[in-house]
């Protein structure tokens, strides 16, 4: 027991050292600019007030939550349905279509950047939430991952449900989804995090600062106009903290879920 405690402390210290860049960021976000440049720490909340107030990070935070949330739900819905079809049905062209879905994993997102930009421009969807969300909805990885997972679920369960007269969507919803919950949850987290951290697409697609996500807000703050302000590092660090923190807190809340979920599909 004592040994355990000791090891826990050692692990904690090792973990803190590993995370020290993040921890230092948080510390720095509370320093005044002057004290940062002079080296004598003076604590303040002014950076957060500036970030949330003058620099609109509250709005960016809500935008990030909204966009990532909708992308996650939509992405999961599409992926689960497709994964179910690929795992459970033998249909002409099925292998080809599955290959077409998996192949999207190999495709560099940037090849689609200019064309998607032009597509959304033609649809008049740039500078809208839809413009942020639509191109991110299809997720080949989630479909691939869930298909592997669903294949591991005994077919006998589906058969039993079909015997009882269930329709395919009911089988999916009542049999497959509950069993695949951990995998779906982990994919959901994966999609959410990916979308949360997405930066090149919103950078290109969004001009209206009311629609900025946190990544864009932060990148923009970091790359201040060269003809303008001195880099206010403590403010940048406050903005970084705001960008990191929701994921960090969410992570602490669902860590076990997340880890358990992620691992279930990756290793069979």
């Amino acid at each position: 027991m004592k040994r355990e405690t000791l090891w826990s402390c050692a692990a904690l210290v090792a973990g803190l050292i590993f995370l020290s860049p993040v921890l230092y960021t948080i510390w720095m976000s509370f320093l005044t600019v002057d004290s940062y440049y002079s080296g004598d720490p003076v604590l303040t909340l002014a950076n957060y007030r500036a970030a949330f107030g003058q620099y609109d990070f509250l709005r960016y935070l809500l935008n990030s939550l909204l966009v990532s949330g909708v992308v996650t739900l939509g992405g999961l819905a599409l992926a689960v349905m497709a994964a179910f079809a690929f795992a459970r049905f033998d249909f002409p062209g099925g292998n080809f279509l599955f290959a077409a879905v998996v192949a999207t994993l190999m495709i560099p997102g940037h090849i689609t950047l200019i064309p998607n930009y032009l597509t959304l421009a033609n649809l008049g969807l740039l500078d809208t939430y839809a413009g942020l969300i639509l191109p991110a909805i299809s997720n080949g990885f989630a479909a691939f991952f869930l298909r592997q997972y669903i294949r591991g679920i005994p077919r006998a369960l589906d058969e039993a449900a079909y015997m009882d007269g269930a329709r395919p969507l009911q089988v999916l919803w009542r049999v497959i989804v509950p069993i695949a919950r951990p995998a779906i949850l982990s994919m959901g987290l994966y999609i959410f995090i990916t979308e949360w951290n997405n930066y090149i697409w919103p950078l290109v697609a969004i001009n209206d600062s009311d629609l900025y996500t946190l990544q864009i807000g932060l990148a923009k703050l970091y790359r201040e106009n060269p003809g303008e302000d001195v880099i206010n590092w403590p403010l940048v660090m406050a903005a970084s903290t705001i960008t990191i923190l929701p994921i960090l807190l969410g992570f602490l809340a669902v860590e076990r879920h997340l880890v358990r979920g992620i691992t279930m599909g990756a290793v069979k």
Partner: peptide, 13 residues
């Protein structure tokens, strides 16, 4: 947990 954390945080940050 500590080792995993960075992989989910913002790349820009």
């Amino acid at each position: 947990g500590a080792l995993f954390l960075p992989s989910v945080t913002s790349t820009v940050a």
